[in-house]
Each structure stands twice: as structure tokens, then as C-alpha cells.
Amino acid sequence: MSVLTSSSEAEGEAIVLASLVEGTAPAADDLEALHRRLELAADRDRMLDLAYTTVDSPVGSLLLAATEKGLLRVAFAVEDHDRVLDVLAATVSGRILRAPRRLDRVAFELDEYFARGRRSFDVALDLSLSSGFRQVVQRHLPLIAYGHTETYKQVAEVVGNPRAVRAVGSACATNPLPIVVPCHRVLRTDGGLGGYIGGLEAKTALLALEGVGAR
């Protein structure tokens, strides 16, 4: 009897537990509303070290992440957004939330850019992911006008280090803010595309969008 009793009790407990789990189960809507509330409260309390969102674009899904200072990272899908977020958590701060509001402005400007209604970006940037020469190069890139290109060599000359052509190449390759900081406007001296963090197809598409013909 005692065996039967305990097995029946275990069954009864399993049924109660199932009712508990089911009966308290949150709907997706509930969790979304709570998430939005957390985004606002965390931002208000200055704890939202990094806010991010993803937006669709003609060059695929883009991850946008911003600190309180400004836009910190733009990442292509080929970079693996989850991996990018993991790296940001490890190197910048774990206090990251999907919180689209902080990215509204840049998302809007990107839409305009892809609709050929905008030629330069007017959002605050946080360049703290790069330092030294790389940051010097990345600060120069927005000066290359929409629809124009420079070569790695020209960029090296302009930033005052004509022999640092390869370093310019790696500064472009590690640009944490592609599209907004237009490293796609830098080509090889022979007119070749060079590399691109979002893949050569994306680079070609961006140049085509800006009316730069393939050579």
C-alpha cells in the first residue's frame, strides 16, 4: 500500500506542478510589456550601458548598438549578431538590452540613406572601440564625400602617414561603425574593392547605391 500511496502522491504532485507551471505561464505579450518597462527604467537610472536593436536593410540585417555617448557599433549579419553582442558584453559592459528607442535616430537616417535621401549621417558616435591610428583613420573616413572614393594609399597620405597603407587597410577592416563611417568608400589603388567587413557584395551594393560605378 505504501508504494501505491507514494506513487499516487507523486502523480498528484506532478499534476499540481503542471497546473502551477501552466497557470503562472506568462504570455509573450506580458513579457514584452515588462521588457519595455525595464528598458525605460534602466535607461532612466543610467544603467543601460548599451542599447541595441536590429534593422532590415538592402545589405541584410544590421545590428545597431549605442552607449549613452553615441553609436558604438554597426554589425552586418555575416559578423553574427549574437557573437558581436557577446564580445561587446565582454569588452564594454554586460548591461546590454534590446532597447530600440536609443537607436531610433540612426535607424531613421539609415532608412533615408538606403532610399537615397541622405548623404551623410548626423548622429553622435562613440569611437571608443578603436584607438590610436585606427581611430585617426576612422575619423577621416566621414570626410570622404558620398559617391566618392579614396584609395588606401590616399587615406594614408591624408592622415599623415603615407607608408601606413596596410595599417589603413586594417583600420578599415576593423571599423566598428561600417556604413555610418564609410569605409566602403576606400578602394585599392588599382581600383579593386579591397576587403569589407560586411562582405564584398555589401561593399559593391553600397557603392552602387551611391552611384559609384564598378571599375
Binding site: 506568462p26 513579457l31 521588457h35 541595441y52 561587446l88 558584453a89 548591461r95 538590452l97
Partner: peptide
């Protein structure tokens, strides 16, 4: 002390925490 993005913590544990809060 590297950790995952807090967003993942919310996604993974948000439902459980809500269940506990609701039951209490």
C-alpha cells in the same frame, strides 16, 4: 569576469521569475 549580455539573462530567466512572482 566576462558575462553574457543582460538581454540574454532576461530572455532566459524572465519567464521563471514572473512565475515565481505570480505564484507569490
Amino acid at each position: 569576469n566576462t558575462k553574457k549580455p543582460f538581454e540574454k539573462v532576461v530572455a532566459e530567466h524572465g519567464p521563471t521569475v514572473l512565475r515565481v512572482c505570480r505564484a507569490v
